[in-house]
Design a protein around this nucleic acid. Sequence first.
DNA 1: TATTGTTATACTCTATAACTATA
DNA 2: TATAGTTATAGAGTATAACAATA
Lengths: 145, 145
Amino acid sequence: MDPAWQRSAVAQDLSFLLARSNALSLAVGNAALRDFGLKVRSYPVLSLACDDLRPTQRELADFLRLDPSQVVTLIDDLERQGLVERRPDERDRRSKVVVATSAGRRVCAAARAAVLDAEEHPFAVLSPEEREQLADLLRRVAFPG
Amino acid sequence: MDPAWQRSAVAQDLSFLLARSNALSLAVGNAALRDFGLKVRSYPVLSLACDDLRPTQRELADFLRLDPSQVVTLIDDLERQGLVERRPDERDRRSKVVVATSAGRRVCAAARAAVLDAEEHPFAVLSPEEREQLADLLRRVAFPG
DNA sequence: TATTGTTATACTCTATAACTATA
DNA sequence: TATAGTTATAGAGTATAACAATA
């Protein structure tokens, strides 16, 4: 059955292929992060906090294309697990800067390794060169301008 | 801000780039389909019904990686709009085959044109050759084996 | 007056289990 | 007994509006 279905009209759509690939990647990613109490949604927040960018919640919301209220609950979870802390922003007392704790840095490093390892599954069909090619193309779609 | 953030660790992950690209494509796709009473989730069902593959609900669930119960509600919607019909499968009376009505075919053709047109926005940064390259890479990820 | 973070709310999506009718 | 479709339900994700503190 599949061969004929793969020649169907929808299966040629870039948006359909993107959605399907993402669904696979999402499932694999969440499974890999489960051991660390993280999800595909919370891991980027922790990772950005670990990159010493001292992001405010507003900046995280903009970059991750999430509503500010969603960022609140993601950070609530990470803070409850002792992985990040909210610090007052000296330059603007309305803002709160998200910084990683030392525990957060350890968990993030381990989680990153697990994610990269898990990515082998959905992307194993591609060679290292093809993966880099795919990353380049997606980078331009994901970050136009 | 963005340039520094784009060099962050997560922004290098294939899974993150895929998720972000998909989020953009999803928003654009749903906006384009809204006029036709369709969504990114229901359009593939209608499109496959229009391809004369005479899919059963089970086959649709397998191909779209959806739970059979989700297929039920998607087809309920499409049937309520008069775009598809459930027909008994002569070969297995447990199964139901989903076929497009003539109205469904008209709507599907118009919706497909709108989707292809809307895809210009997220993928406009890529040349036609690059888009085909991206489609080839994603096809192999989305349909391994 | 505008913005940051927060709370509350509702709506969609996703996952699961149980039921029925057929095989 | 196993499978196709259905129903019901709960959890996760997403979007929106309103509010307090600060700019």
